[in-house]
Design a binder for these strands. Structure first.
Lengths: 340, 340
DNA sequence: ACGAGATCTGTGAGCGCTCCCAGAATGGGC
DNA sequence: GCCCATTCTGGGAGCGCTCACAGATCTCGT
């Protein structure tokens, strides 16, 4: 009831113009803070807006400007991981803060099935969003391909190996993995294994490559166990396998903190102490790292900053500014705690 | 470039009309599946739509229908908890699935500061959304008050004690807390404490009330430790306090699984075995419950379903259907694992 | 005092769509 | 064959806004 009354009654730009004693055009100029408006007119309009409680109707504005003032954030993860991966939440929050500062609305689009994928592709071509941020796309991601084809302003968080021409913001997974593995070696570990995941995307592959590079001569492919997801359950599964292959392993690099948490569980269950018998390091510096027992040594990944930068890139593209079409890497650093 | 070309070039209803050899009006009627359209015209229009690749311009549609076809989901939590609380993710996912089935877009609005709060209130009165779902509102929540005042279709997930007239969907926290506490007593525990949180909302208060009711004569207010958040850190803090007050406690009801996880950590650190020395139960049946060591006995809360029902309620209100303005409770059940 | 340029303002046109009214076509019933 | 109800269609009006253009007003150098 009330809603209906309020809506019918809502002041338009014409009401403001009438009260302020100026024309539609002048009100519009004030609203869009254009240059050629006299101080007197500006004041009158602002007072009138206040008086009649005017709120701009975006639908009308969008219609003529052909802009929606919304940015889509596409999260392409199975539901389970969406809930479990703390990075996604941080990225979302970072993106949201930049966009709202710039008066853009974040619209989260969650893809969980092929049906969703299709619907989102349509959504993107439908002019509902002015730009799009794609989180954790895999290789051969159909959505990434659609985005690339229609040429909508976009940015990746992370970087699918097979798509060119869309800027991305990520971290240098190779160097980070290499650095933390090296540091683990320096604690005196001799037999170091890795639980690798996410091999369908660059992050997963680069972490393995960094691990391999750090080990150099000492590298033994037998000690790299591959699991499907960056998840706790995968960590348990992977560590059991690693132990089966190499019972005397004394160091483990887990591709994510969630995996590392699973690794710790298995080590505890099999009566091994951490860091006494085995040193364990993770990746992400998520809540998992501080929660686990003992707290994890890990690579700090600036997830919120990643989201922020991606949003800024899309905004810049919308403004027509030149954007480095390659991408940028953000710094990571190692956080040394008790697990190694 | 391409984007611009596509946009400029995008087919309108007039193009479809021209190709189909009918008028604008007829195309619109087909689009909105109104009754009086001949089969021939309908077919012609559908073919034309296919041929020119027409996609409806929502901005124009919204302008005249005064509907946005978007529903806001307001999450009013500090950032940290947004990331930590698995229920929020599940609720979001449930809501999203109902809305997309009904061709509505979910717009997540995150409130983290008073500034956000103000902006969101404006957003709501600005006609950007046709309805709103409010998650975890506290007592005296300013946003809840605004929603109640402007009379926009809305639903709560959970129920702020001081707002009337807006339907809510929640669980019966009192009965669930009472049931699991009773069951904990039946395992032979004598000195049972509680780590209580979220006392600024109904869920927190009702859980304490249920706990109190279950204990009956045996209830000792000294054994209820109040902490601010449903968070892991709060669990640690709370359990330390409880142990200080009652070293011989042999049962703990934690107001959430995250808290229970903190409780387990403290118990382990102080050399107590679970469930040997102390039985611990949680609430939520979130990922925390299965992850922790040992896995938690807890109350299963249908978070996804909660989101789904709230979305359905808002949709029904938008359609003008009568909605039970009180609210509905969804069933919970106890999941018995190893921690008690 | 005059005119060129800068500054400011009003207004018609139109974005793509839905609503609604008037009128055309169709189909029975007699 | 005629009339009335039903079914179907076209097109004017207008949602609230921005854009572009033309005209009005001001400023300042000469």
């Amino acid at each position: 009831m009330i809603a209906k009354r309020l809506q019918t009654t809502r002041a338009t730009i014409n009401d403001v113009a009438a009260v302020a004693g100026v024309s539609r055009g002048t009100v519009s100029r004030v609203l869009n803070s254009e240059v050629y408006v006299s101080d007197a007119a500006k004041k009158a309009v602002e007072d009138a807006i206040e008086q009649v409680g005017y709120v701009r109707n975006t639908a009308a504005r969008n219609l003529v400007t052909r802009q929606s003032h919304a940015i889509g954030l596409i999260v392409h993860e199975p539901h389970s991981l969406f809930l479990e991966d703390p990075n996604i939440g941080s990225i979302l929050l970072g993106t949201n803060s930049v966009l709202s500062d710039n008066d853009y609305q974040l619209v989260s689009l969650i893809i969980d099935s092929d049906r969703d994928s299709h619907r989102v592709a349509e959504y993107l071509t439908g002019g509902f969003v002015d730009g799009v941020i794609i989180v954790s796309a895999r290789a051969h991601d159909p959505i990434a391909r659609v985005v690339s084809q229609i040429g909508i302003p976009a940015a990746f968080v992370g970087h699918p190996v097979d798509i060119e021409g869309i800027p991305y913001v990520g971290i240098d997974n190779f160097s980070a993995a290499k650095a933390i593995t090296t540091r683990l070696m320096q604690t005196g570990r001799r037999t170091i294994g890795m639980i690798a995941a996410g091999l369908d995307r660059d992050s997963g592959q680069d972490r393995v490559a960094g691990f391999t590079a750090a080990l150099g001569e000492a590298f033994d492919p037998e000690l790299v166990v591959k699991v499907p997801l960056y998840a706790h359950a995968s960590g348990i599964e992977g560590m059991r396998e690693l132990l089966a292959r190499a019972p005397h392993v004394d160091g483990v690099f887990a591709a994510s903190d969630a995996i590392a948490a699973g690794v710790l569980d298995v080590l505890r269950d099999t009566g091994r102490s951490v860091p006494g018998d085995v040193g364990v390091v993770g990746f992400d510096d998520s809540a998992w790292a501080t929660r686990s027992q003992p707290p994890l040594s890990t690579v700090h990944q600036p997830a919120g900053q990643l989201g922020r930068r991606a949003a800024e890139s899309v905004l810049a593209q919308i403004r027509g500014e030149a954007v480095d079409s390659a991408g940028t890497f953000l710094d990571t650093h190692i956080v040394w705690r008790d697990s190694a």
